[in-house]
Computed example of a mutant assay.
Amino acid sequence: MHSEIREQPFEPYAELLKYQQAMHAAGRYGATAVFVGSMREFNEDETVTAMELEHYPGMTEKYLHNLGEQAAARWDLINSLILHRVGRVKPDDAIVLVAVWSTHRKDAFEASRYLMEELKSRAPFWKKEQTSEGQRWVENNTAGY
């Protein structure tokens, strides 16, 4: 189980391939569930040109680590990966990559969804959007469940 916060842009599918190859688990998993979240150029009916993602150093890393451990305790997982951006993000940039490897698809799908919903609703990240009207803090995330 690995989690990491990144300040620089990343290519999610290259990261996925690199991590999967380094796992040395070929033949052990039958399912890989992957979610990539990217920045949209709109929110609340306004154009968004950029966003600052802030986090609480130390606390956020610990939260992500514990989240991966909770998923592993709840589902039969071989491995998981969470990469999350902070800093300045532009439309189309990847913000988050969640990948889960399991023997069977049910565990992979359910664990992946759990990780994403927890990230969106409880992880200590704060978003400030830049719009044509100025800057604003994002107060509510979109509902997932």
Rank of each mutant, 00 (worst) to 15 (best):
Y13F: 15
I78M: 09
G87S: 00
T60M: 00
K18I: 10
T142I: 11
A99M: 09
P124R: 05
G37C: 09
N66T: 09
R28W: 11
D93V: 11
M23E: 13
H65W: 08
I95F: 02
G30W: 10
T60A: 04
G30A: 13
L81N: 07
H84W: 02
S3C: 08
T60E: 03
A111Q: 03
P57S: 10
D76H: 14
I5L: 11
V96Y: 03
P9V: 08
M39T: 10
K18S: 15
E129Y: 04
D92W: 10
Y19I: 02
Y29T: 01
K127C: 05
K120H: 07
A71C: 08
T103V: 12
E15P: 09
L83K: 05
G37V: 03
A72L: 12
A50E: 06
E117L: 09
H2L: 14
R113H: 14
L67A: 06
L115E: 00
L77P: 04
Q21F: 12
V89E: 00
Q8C: 09
L16R: 03
H65Y: 12
A94F: 01
Q70A: 13
G30T: 10
E118L: 03
E61Y: 07
R6A: 12
W75S: 01
G58M: 03
D107I: 07
F109P: 02
M1I: 12
R113A: 14
M59F: 10
F35C: 04
R136V: 06
K120D: 08
M39E: 11
D93Q: 11
Y114F: 15
D107Q: 10
E139V: 11
E44K: 13
A31E: 01
W101L: 14
T47A: 13
A73G: 15
E4L: 14
V96H: 01
V86K: 09
E46L: 06
D92L: 09
L16C: 06
F109H: 06
L97P: 02
A94R: 00
V89W: 02
L81Y: 01
E44Q: 15
Y56Q: 04
E4G: 12
H84Q: 04
